Simulated scan of single mutants.
Amino acid sequence: MRAIEIQKTGGPAVLQLVERPRPELTGPDDILVRLMAAGVNPVDTKIRANGALLPAGFPLVPGCDGAGVVEAVGADVTRFKPGDEVWFCHGGLGGPVGNYAEYICLDNHLAQAKPHALGFAEAAAAPLVLLTAWEALSDRAGLAADQTVLIHAGAGGVGHVAIQLARLAGARVCTTVSGPEKADFAHALGAEYCINYREEDLVHAVMEWTGGRGVDVALDTVGPACFRQTIPAMAAYGNLVTILDPGPDLDLKEARVRNLRLSLELMLTPQLRDLPRALAHQGEILRRCGKLIDSGELKIHVSQTFPLAAAAQAHQLLEAGHVTGKLALTID
Rank of each mutant, 00 (worst) to 15 (best):
L268C: 04
V69F: 09
G63S: 06
E319C: 08
D146Y: 13
A188L: 01
L130H: 13
L275N: 04
L60P: 01
L219H: 14
K182A: 02
R140A: 14
N99V: 05
F227D: 03
L53S: 06
Q7F: 06
N99R: 06
G154R: 06
R198N: 15
I6P: 01
L32E: 01
P82T: 11
D76V: 04
G27F: 02
T330R: 03
Q271E: 07
V73L: 02
G283E: 12
V257M: 13
L189Y: 10
L15S: 08
R2E: 02
V14L: 02
T324E: 15
G68K: 05
K291T: 12
L168G: 04
Q313C: 10
V61S: 08
G157S: 14
A169V: 07
P82C: 11
T9I: 09
K291S: 07
V158A: 13
L32T: 02
A101L: 08
A218E: 04
E102W: 10
R20L: 03
Q229H: 12
Q16A: 13
N259Y: 03
L329C: 11
Y237Q: 13
T210G: 00
A101G: 08
V33G: 04
C226D: 09
A124C: 08
L54H: 04
D201F: 09
G98H: 12
L264Q: 01
Q271I: 01
A124L: 09
G159Y: 07
N259E: 03
V61F: 06
F227E: 00
A183M: 12
A49K: 14
L150T: 03
V149S: 03
A309L: 07
A169K: 04
A235N: 09
Y237C: 10
A309G: 08
H301M: 09
E19M: 05
D251K: 13
A255N: 00
V161K: 13
E122M: 10
T45K: 07
Y100K: 07
R256L: 05
L189A: 14
A113V: 14
V129L: 04
D65F: 01
P21F: 07
L106P: 00
R256P: 00
A191Q: 15
P28Y: 03
A38H: 06
M207L: 15
E24A: 15
E208I: 03
I285E: 11
C289E: 12
T305R: 01
A56D: 15
E297P: 01
S303V: 06
C105M: 11
G74D: 05
D146N: 15
H187E: 10
N99D: 10
E85C: 08
R172M: 14
G214R: 11
V241C: 11
D30C: 05
L279M: 07
A320M: 09
R167Y: 04
A117W: 00
I195L: 02
D146E: 15
G119C: 02
P127L: 09
L272R: 12
V158K: 07
E135W: 05
Q112P: 00
V70Q: 05
V61E: 06
G321T: 15
P23I: 11
